[in-house]
Write a protein that binds this DNA or RNA. Structure first.
Lengths: 209, 209
DNA sequence: CGGTTGGTTGATCATGCTCAAATTTGGTGG
DNA sequence: CCACCAAATTTGAGCATGATCAACCAACCG
């Protein structure tokens, strides 16, 4: 991971802003680096080259809701305003390519389909948060991640349990308990903290509802 | 409400499809009529002329999540696909105007800002469902409705308690209890089932977080 | 009036949260 | 390679919020 040393940015969770953001080509962010912050001026939209990004919002008392994770190839940074309403951070060492200004009307034909995809994703996530229980949420989350990673048995989890809980509207303890339960039931295996192997695909799908 | 009799559609909750949908100008839907259904081919996007629309998704066992309410002037019907992933129904007698095909690239410059607005709305709703308790959800809901209706003290609730609960990820009983509590605390008044008067605006805002 | 629909209230229960510990993991230096 | 450490995760016990189940009530309409 030589690129970490070559990028002139601070390292560490919730670290300082990346100096490379305005570079014309892929910007590199170490784990925890902020890509943009709430209130900051929108520079356009981005595509993840490698790594993973979390987009989230905070309540005054610190409660956090992650609205989306973005993996390699996916777009993020859509805003209705000229100012960001959310935070975006690199989850692990991540490369991000600026794509276009979101208010560039020449580009809107290209941007609209991506924005609509984000919208459908968010709406489907609403169903999960509003109406599914803890097991269903985790099962849906794993199924979704697996799909986005090509449907392989071995799912890569770039994010921590805390990130997962803030994405699913649960606590870290509940996430951990559900993982343990699924493991005990032989639905998944946990080779290490950052990957999940799906053993019983059908059971997982049924749990997701 | 003479237009109900003049429109050749069935009346009643979850009623049959409106015959007027393909008309070039505003289509009229009675309370409960379906505007489009999951799996149905997308015809484009719509603007609410008057009345109110609920957009929702169902789980296999009947659990429902309303992803959005749309009031007069607002747009809905954005989809990433050529097929609808959600249901849309008139909440009360409602007029709906078809605006454009969502895959019409000439229109994308006009459509993109509206789609982005829907996206931000959905993402903010995620924060409510994922991280706020029942009182906060109701307070946020009332605040949002008030804003969209011009910020007046008297809020019009076109939707039932059941709709509200399916929007906020609560049960109808919890919605009712929170309304009663806010009334007892002097934050709101309930002149009738379909309106709310905000008495203590600041308290409501603080509760919404 | 009687019936139906939608809403409120009460009592009990269960899911998931909180607080507290134990344990595992991954990294670091000997 | 191994011991050690800090951070992350897992596990446990008790609790609280909101769900469930069951009456009750009010408005509306034939």
């Amino acid at each position: 991971m030589a690129f970490i040393e070559t990028s002139a940015v601070a390292i560490g969770p919730y670290g300082s802003r990346a100096a490379l953001r305005s570079a014309p080509l892929p910007a590199l962010y170490p784990a925890g680096a902020e890509i943009y912050g709430q209130g900051e001026r929108c520079r356009g939209i981005y595509q993840v080259e490698f790594g993973a990004v979390r987009v989230y919002r905070l309540l005054a008392d610190g409660r956090r809701q992650i609205t989306a994770f973005h993996l390699a190839g996916e777009m993020f940074g859509f805003e209705a305003d000229t100012v960001h309403h959310f935070f975006a951070e690199a989850i692990c060492a991540t490369g991000v390519r600026p794509i276009a200004a979101s208010n560039d009307s020449d580009q809107s034909g290209r941007i609209l389909p991506m924005a609509l995809k984000s919208l459908v994703r968010a709406q489907e996530h609403l169903l999960v948060l509003g109406r599914q229980n803890a097991v269903e949420r985790i099962a849906a989350f794993l199924g979704d991640l697996a799909d986005r990673q090509g449907g392989l048995k071995l799912i890569d989890l770039p994010m921590s349990r805390t990130d997962i809980s803030d994405y699913l509207g649960l606590t870290i303890e509940t996430v951990s308990r559900v993982f343990s339960r699924l493991k005990r039931q032989g639905v998944i295996r946990l080779p290490n903290l950052r990957s999940v192997e799906v053993v019983n695909w059908q059971a997982l799908q049924e749990m997701a509802g």
